Simulated assay, not measured.
Amino acid sequence: MLSLNKVHHIAIICSDYDKSKLFYTEILGLTIIREIYREERQSYKLDLALNGEYIVELFSFPNPPARTSRPEAAGMRHLAFEVSNLDEVVSFLMSKKIDCEAIRVDEFTGKQFTFIADPDDLPIEFYER
């Protein structure tokens, strides 16, 4: 049996680096660990942390192809963050003019959750603990 410790990071390729950098740092509140520009690839690599733990790699590449990204599309479904108070999260996001789906309730756990989209329309879930 394979012995995994934890998820190390999630890698995201964005179409507009500055817009995505602002979203992930100023809206979601992730902190920058390091930012590197790789001249040979014409690409930025931004390492981001949540509560001091490395979690997201944000990449820019010239002209990346579009990808279907709705939660029900094939492939990775979404990126989910646990939150303590979903109503506060939704209020904050709406104050930043970010559309939130209606709050739903997980039929198995009874917990509330909602989705937003990042600047490239990638689905992000907020799940109340």
Results as ranks from 00 to 15, higher is better:
A49T: 05
F113M: 05
V7F: 12
H78C: 12
R41A: 13
F61L: 09
S60Y: 02
D87N: 11
S20C: 12
N51C: 06
S84M: 06
D47C: 03
V90Y: 01
I27S: 02
L93C: 07
E128F: 12
I10R: 09
L2M: 13
H8N: 15
F61T: 01
N85E: 12
E72K: 12
I124K: 03
I32G: 05
R129P: 04
P123Y: 11
P64M: 04
T25R: 05
S20F: 11
G75Q: 04
I36F: 05
E40I: 07
L93K: 05
F115Q: 01
S3Q: 09
P119K: 03
P65H: 05
P123F: 13
L22G: 09
L86F: 11
P65A: 01
M94W: 12
I98R: 14
E53G: 04
E39R: 08
V90W: 02
M76W: 08
L79Y: 08
I32C: 10
A117N: 15
R67L: 14
R77G: 10
R104P: 03
F92N: 13
G75Y: 02
I10V: 15
S91V: 02
E53I: 02
S91F: 06
E101T: 11
F61D: 01
L2H: 02
M94R: 15
Y24R: 02
A102W: 00
V56T: 01
F113N: 00
I33A: 06
E128R: 10
K45C: 09
I32W: 02
N63Q: 04
N63E: 06
P119L: 01
E101F: 04
A73Q: 03
R77V: 05
I10E: 12
D99A: 08
R38H: 13
K6E: 10
I33E: 15
S43A: 15
R34V: 09
F23T: 01
F23R: 01
L122D: 11
P71A: 02
K19C: 10
Y44V: 03
E128C: 10
T31Y: 09
L28I: 14
I27N: 03
A11M: 07
K111M: 11
P71H: 01
Q42W: 00
A102T: 03
A73T: 04
D118E: 05
E107L: 00
M94D: 11
E107Y: 00
D87P: 02
K45F: 10
L22V: 07
R34N: 14
D47M: 10
L2W: 07
D87L: 12
A102Y: 00
I12N: 07
R38W: 08
F115R: 00
D87C: 12
S91W: 00
P62F: 08
G75I: 07
D87E: 14
D99L: 11
Q112L: 08
F92G: 10
Y37D: 08
F81E: 09
I124L: 08
Y44S: 02
V89E: 13
D118F: 06
H78P: 11
S43C: 04
F23Y: 10
H78D: 14
E39N: 14
A80V: 09
Y44P: 01
D47T: 06
E88K: 09
R34T: 08
H9S: 10
I55Q: 07
Y37W: 06
K19R: 14
N51T: 04
P71L: 05
F115D: 01
G75S: 10
S3R: 11
I103K: 11
V105F: 01
D106H: 08
A80Y: 09
M76I: 12
K6L: 07
R70Q: 09
F113Q: 03
H8E: 13
A49C: 10
H78Y: 14
